[in-house]
Amino acid sequence: MTPALPDILRGNFMALAIPGPPEQQGEFMTGRVGVIALLSLLAAQEVERGTQARVWENAAIAAVLAKAAETYGVQYAEIASTGPVDLSLEALDRANAALRRGLIALHEAVEAAGDLLRHKMIVGLYGQMAERRNLELPPLPAR
């Protein structure tokens, strides 16, 4: 399961709002606050780039599926038409999940057919998708 951004932020809130027992103070609490800070930093990056990455990714996958429909069957054109009415992260993620399942099914069909050109195109798309979803970790503090 990949937690959604609201779930992560609610977890951060709960971790800070509910004080731990005395035995969880000191180094344990310092580590806990460090994890919360890191999650908050990653959440901020997701807020900045998440919608744009999902919109691009959904359009890119839909284009690959629509083009593949000519060769691999009309079901890919139907999957390619999957799209959210609103641009909330939840709606974009639902559409993205359906499109990714379609892309995986297409990739399996492409590999079975030995279609090397389309295989390379799909693998390239996977790389672009990963790059657009990349979150940057801060440098480790000096000890």
Rank of each mutant, 00 (worst) to 15 (best):
M1P: 09
M1V: 10
T2H: 12
A4C: 04
A4Q: 15
L5F: 02
L5S: 07
P6N: 05
D7S: 14
I8T: 11
L9V: 03
R10D: 13
G11K: 07
F13S: 10
F13R: 13
F13L: 11
M14L: 15
L16Q: 15
L16C: 08
A17G: 09
P19Y: 05
E23D: 13
E23S: 13
Q24Y: 12
G26H: 08
E27R: 15
F28T: 10
G31F: 06
R32M: 09
R32D: 03
V33N: 12
V35M: 14
I36N: 05
L42C: 05
A43S: 15
A44D: 06
Q45I: 06
V47N: 04
V47M: 13
R49W: 04
R49P: 00
G50E: 07
A53N: 05
V55T: 12
W56K: 09
N58Q: 03
N58S: 04
A59V: 02
A60R: 10
A60T: 09
I61F: 07
I61D: 02
A62R: 05
A63H: 09
V64T: 11
V64L: 13
L65C: 03
L65I: 04
L65P: 08
A66M: 09
K67A: 15
A68D: 01
A68Q: 00
A69G: 15
T71F: 00
Y72S: 00
G73H: 03
G73D: 05
V74P: 07
Q75G: 04
Y76D: 03
A77K: 08
E78L: 12
E78H: 12
E78F: 10
I79K: 11
A80S: 10
S81I: 01
T82R: 10
G83T: 12
G83Y: 08
G83N: 07
G83E: 11
P84Q: 08
V85Q: 12
L89Q: 11
L89M: 14
L89R: 13
E90F: 09
A91L: 02
D93L: 08
A95R: 11
A97V: 13
A98P: 06
R100F: 08
R101M: 07
G102T: 07
G102A: 06
L103A: 08
I104C: 02
I104H: 06
A105L: 07
A105C: 03
H107M: 10
H107I: 00
A109N: 02
A109C: 02
A109I: 00
V110Q: 00
E111Y: 00
E111K: 02
E111A: 02
E111I: 01
E111W: 01
A112M: 00
A112D: 05
A113S: 13
G114D: 00
L117N: 05
R118S: 01
R118D: 00
H119A: 14
K120H: 10
M121N: 06
I122N: 01
V123A: 08
G124S: 10
Y126L: 08
Y126G: 08
M129H: 09
E131Q: 15
R132W: 06
R133H: 12
N134V: 11
E136L: 14
P138N: 04
L140T: 09
P141Q: 10
R143S: 09
